[in-house]
Structure formats: structure tokens, C-alpha cells
Amino acid sequence: MAEKLTIGKALNAGLRRALEQDPKVLIMGEDVGKLGGVFRITDGLQKDFGEDRVIDTPLAESGIIGTAVGLAIRGYRPVCEIQFDGFVYPAYDQIVSQVAKMHFRSQGKVKVPMVIRIPFGGGIGAVEHHSESPEAYFAHTAGLKVVACSSPQDAYTMIQQAIASDDPIVFLEPKRRYHEKGEVDTEATYPLHASRRVRPGTDATVLAYGPMVRTALDAATAAQEDGRDLEVFDLRTLSPLDLEPVFESVRRTGRCVIVHEAPSNVGLGAEIAARITEECFYSLEAPVLRVTGFDTPYPAARLEEDYLPDLDRVLDAVDRTFGW
């Protein structure tokens, strides 16, 4: 069945379906119950599934993740909401030292099938700690998988796949795109850990994920006017990366630009650029370039448009790959 939903509503529908299909699925977090979360992603779920399954927790992120580990050991499948990206750090120890390592340490005897949902990225005019892109911290940690959705379809499908997976998954949601609408096929099936070509093109390859996919697509549309045909990928899975289709693309285009909001220093772009250089060295017409947030703390709201990659900065980087 296909219907038009926003990313936020699609996540809500996906969570609802997961709760319906598996009685072990729990939702927990700050304000997720009566309020339905500050972004209303869990709206109505507590009303329909009860306080036992949709749990307003005390205000403590380490507590949320740590108790979710215990619930997972006990056979539940917790879906934890972290209210904003910048508030995941009190739980960082639980995530990188406990969640990530249970399976490895127990030689596969203990699984912690949990999902950590994080609305991430900027562009909403917020005060500090509400606009960050912490993906690299998690992608750097073996034992965690990290995915980012960018469309209503993926929001709906990926959240269910993440919940069904036995891997602990950090699930990044593009908060500034929550209200963007798109078709959702509720029966669609495709793999979770796969990148996707969202626009075919011949002249240069642009890679993005989460909120930057829309930016990359807009840049591609604008580039068309200059007679440049950009191929755009939505990476979707940040750990593990799925780069085979990207390598194939870069071998054809010879040019690649990576876009993310997170700072460039030791960010996802660095890893991707290294891998592309290793795999596509003889096809490259220019170095792989990155368009990212700056290596500064996320700035005050009135400077965030300068900080965040936008269409112009993407096109500027594309230009530079042609000027090489």
C-alpha cells in the first residue's frame, strides 16, 4: 500500500508496526509517552500500546541506554530515543563500552538487539547541543552499526529493519527534514545496509546521507543548468559503509565530492575518501573533495547557514574537481 507521509509520520508508522508485530519491542526515552516526543515521532504510541511498552524514563541518558542493555539481555528489543544529538554523550560510555561489545565479549552468547534513535544535524535555528552530527563517534566503534534515513520511505522501512536486526544500531534521523513528504510503500523490501544511487549522472559523483541528501539533489538540479550531470548517492549505511556501487560510479565519473554536516577532521568523509583513493586511484581526475561543517563547535543559530554545507558550497566543490 502506498501513501504520502512526512519523514516524521513515516517513522511513527514504522514504530507502530514494529510494536504491533513483536510484543518484545519497547520504546523508551524522555517525553516519548504522553507528549509523543519533542518531535512527536512517538505520538499516540503510548496511548495505544500502554505505559509498559512506551516508557517515559527518568531524565538520564546513561540510564536509558544502560537499562535498555539489561532489557535486551532479558529478551526485549528496546528502541531508545535520545532527545537531541548533543544529549547522547551522557550515554556514550554505555554505548561504546557496553552495547558495542556485549556480543564480542560473550563470544556471541549475548545479543543486545537495540536501536538508538537520534534526531541529528542542524538547520533548525536551535541553541547549542541541538544541532550536532555525532555519527563518526559511533561509526568509529566496532560492534555498532550506524544508519541514516533521508526519505519517508526509508524512515518507514529502515526503522523496522533496524528493530528486527540483532545488531545494536544507531539510527540517525534528519531532524530538519522531519516535515518533508514522500511516497511510502508499506510493503517495500530492500536491504538495510546498502547505499543507493538516488540520481544517475555521468560527470561527477556526489555522496551524502541524512539531511544532506536533499542538498546534494538540489545541487545536482542546479548543476544541470551549467550542463553538468551529477550522480548522487544516499549512503544510508554509515557503518558498515556500502561503497562498491560508489566505486563503480567514481570509476565512470572520475570525480567525487562527499557532503556531510559533521566537521571534516577525522569524519566519515575522510574514511570514504581514503577508500575511494584505494579502489579508484587510476580513474580519478581530481582528488576526492569534502564539503562539511567546519572544525569548530556548532555555532550560534545566526551563523549556522555559514557552517552548514549548502547547494553553493557543493557546487563550488564540484567546480573545483573540474578545475583540477
Binding site: 577532521n265 567546519f294 572544525d295 569548530t296 563547535p297 545566526r302 551563523l303 555559514d306
Partner: peptide, 23 residues
Amino acid sequence: PDPHPLTLFDHVYPNGSPVVDAQ
């Protein structure tokens, strides 16, 4: 007044950083 865009690179470190300066 709105802040000048380049101020976002200020004060990241007491001793500055060549990375930030280059950006």
C-alpha cells in the same frame, strides 16, 4: 547586529589552530 560569519572560527582554542585558521 548579526554576527559576522568569520567569527564562527574565533576562540576555538586558546592557542589557535592551523586547521581552523586555514578553514
